[in-house]
Amino acid sequence: MLLDVSQIPKVALERMNKVHEEEIKLLNQLFESIDKGKEIEEIDDLFKAFVEDVKKHFSSEQEMMEQFNFFAYPMHRGEHDMILGQLANLEKNWEKNKNPKLIKAYIENEFLPWLMNHIQTMDTVTAHFLSHFVRD
């Protein structure tokens, strides 16, 4: 296991916490599949599911931020766009090389550290702001 869901920082909106938990569960499945040397097809399916999950995660946050005119929306969106760009590059590389080590390295060294920091900073502020408008 890469990360226990209990280690994810909590924010003021429970719906965001649930999205983060589901994303970590999926990330753990992908990581374990790679770590245990599972078939490329399984890794491919999990990787695609992870990328789609991240896109939905970011999209739902961005919709709420836009709807309630969150003051730091451009900065928060910029972080999402950066990660989506990285994932797009990783997807291209994956389709070309099917090298699970590249996905594993990205998850461990880039995505997970970024996500933990992003939750503790951007998502914490965003959730606090949105909690004044959104009911869980």
Rank of each mutant, 00 (worst) to 15 (best):
L3Y: 06
Q7G: 07
Q7E: 15
Q7I: 04
Q7Y: 08
I8L: 08
K10Y: 07
K10G: 04
V11F: 05
V11Y: 01
E14F: 12
E14M: 06
R15K: 12
M16H: 05
N17P: 03
V19W: 02
V19N: 06
H20T: 08
E21N: 06
E22R: 08
E23R: 02
I24R: 04
I24H: 03
K25Y: 10
K25C: 08
K25F: 11
L27P: 04
L27R: 01
N28Y: 04
N28T: 02
N28V: 06
Q29D: 15
L30M: 06
L30C: 05
E32P: 01
S33E: 08
I34N: 09
D35G: 11
K36I: 04
K36H: 13
K36Y: 11
K38Q: 12
K38S: 10
E41T: 11
E41N: 13
E42V: 08
I43M: 13
D45F: 02
D45R: 05
L46P: 12
K48C: 07
K48M: 15
K48W: 08
K48A: 13
A49R: 09
F50R: 12
F50G: 09
F50Y: 10
F50I: 11
E52T: 05
H57T: 00
S59F: 09
S60Q: 14
S60P: 10
Q62G: 02
E63N: 02
E63I: 14
M64I: 03
E66P: 00
E66A: 01
Q67L: 13
F68N: 02
F68H: 03
F70A: 12
F71N: 09
A72T: 00
A72C: 13
A72V: 03
P74E: 12
H76M: 05
H76D: 06
R77Q: 13
G78M: 02
G78C: 00
H80P: 10
M82Q: 04
L84W: 01
L84I: 08
G85S: 12
G85Y: 06
Q86T: 06
L87T: 06
A88R: 02
N89Q: 14
L90C: 14
L90W: 03
K92D: 14
K92T: 00
N93A: 13
W94D: 14
W94G: 11
W94C: 14
E95R: 10
K96D: 07
K98N: 07
K98E: 11
N99W: 04
K101N: 14
I103S: 06
K104T: 06
Y106V: 08
E108Y: 00
N109R: 14
N109C: 04
N109K: 15
F111N: 10
L112A: 04
L112C: 02
P113I: 14
P113G: 15
L115S: 03
M116K: 11
M116E: 14
N117A: 13
N117C: 03
N117I: 00
H118F: 07
H118G: 01
H118C: 05
I119D: 04
I119Y: 09
Q120L: 15
Q120A: 15
T121I: 09
T124G: 08
T124Q: 13
T124W: 15
A127C: 03
A127N: 02
A127I: 05
F129D: 10
L130S: 01
L130H: 00
L130A: 01
S131E: 09
S131P: 00
S131G: 01
H132G: 12
H132N: 10
F133W: 03
